[in-house]
């Protein structure tokens, strides 16, 4: 994707309101509208995410879920409506998006300063299993390693809100399972509010406290997941939830 560098270098006309005082909610968005060339992509979307709540956002391709994430991340300023996000927001993208010309440690501390950030970055790298890779070039990492480094980078910001845009979409199935466990563990330790955008129904059920479904630019389902943190796949309601969500997404569940 080539860019016109002058566009991102100018500040947008609108950015989400950064709320400084501690609130009960990490995200409060009401009546968000966004259209591209007159075509409505998001219509009257309202959502809130509590502090430390893990929310998964499901939707088919083109449902507007990435657009919503970009708005919350402050990357898209051409929307209408009210959006409040906390001061510290971190984003994990589908590609790990490590700067190829910087080694791993400076990638993790990107935009951060001081000894504390440096120390935290080292700790986080160890936590995601990348101790000793501080000086490696991103090109030498496997897909899973790169995504773990990206997770460390996101957490190094000590975010109150962590936005994830299909972060495991490009990984193989085995690596994805490991990443799910790692993410769950990191989430429980650092407790940011999480919005995980995904099209993987099982991933959403395994990880989230609540699942939102976006259909044609509108939130069509808001479903609390009342399952234990561990062993969700074995839970009696797992298949039932899966079927319900697949139906909501317009896919026939043939796994009966």
């Amino acid at each position: 994707m080539a860019l016109d560098a002058s566009v991102p270098l100018t500040t947008g006309t609108r950015t989400p309101e950064r709320v400084r005082e501690p609130a009960t909610h990490a995200v409060r968005a009401s009546k968000v509208n966004r259209s591209f060339d007159g075509r409505g992509v998001l219509e009257e979307v309202s959502l809130s995410i509590g502090n430390g709540e893990f929310v998964a956002l499901l939707g088919r391709s083109g449902s507007g879920k990435s657009t919503l994430l970009r708005i919350l991340a402050g990357l898209d300023s051409e929307y209408a409506g009210q959006v409040d996000v906390p001061e510290r927001v971190a984003v994990a993208f589908q590609d790990a998006r490590l700067l190829p010309w910087a080694r791993i440690l400076p990638n993790v501390t990107l935009g951060l300063r001081g000894q504390r950030a440096h120390k935290l970055a080292l700790e986080l790298l160890a936590e995601v299993g990348l101790a000793g890779k501080e000086k490696a070039w991103p090109k030498t990492l496997s897909g899973g390693e790169a995504q773990r480094a990206a997770l460390a980078r996101a957490l190094a910001r000590e975010p109150e809100l962590l936005l994830m845009d299909e972060p495991f979409g490009a990984l193989d199935a085995l690596t994805r399972i490991k990443m799910h466990r790692l993410l769950r563990r990191l989430f429980l330790r650092h407790r940011p509010a999480v919005l995980l955008v995904t099209h993987d129904v099982e991933e959403a059920i395994l990880l989230a406290d609540r699942i939102l479904v976006l259909t044609d630019g509108r939130l069509s389902l808001d479903l609390p997941i009342d399952l234990p943190a561990e062993g969700r796949r074995q839970a009696a309601t797992f298949r039932q939830l899966r079927a319900q969500l697949l139906t909501e997404l317009g896919v026939e569940d043939d796994d009966h």
């Binding site: 080539a2 560098a5 590609d95 700067l99």
Partner: peptide, 26 residues
């Protein structure tokens, strides 16, 4: 300069890099 990938510009924006940081690091 003009063809630096936009995805890295997005990354810089979400990482709290200022304008100088964007130029210097990205």
């Amino acid at each position: 300069i003009r063809s630096v990938d936009a995805k890295y510009i997005d990354l810089a924006a979400t990482s709290g890099l200022g304008r100088i940081g964007l130029i210097r690091r990205v």
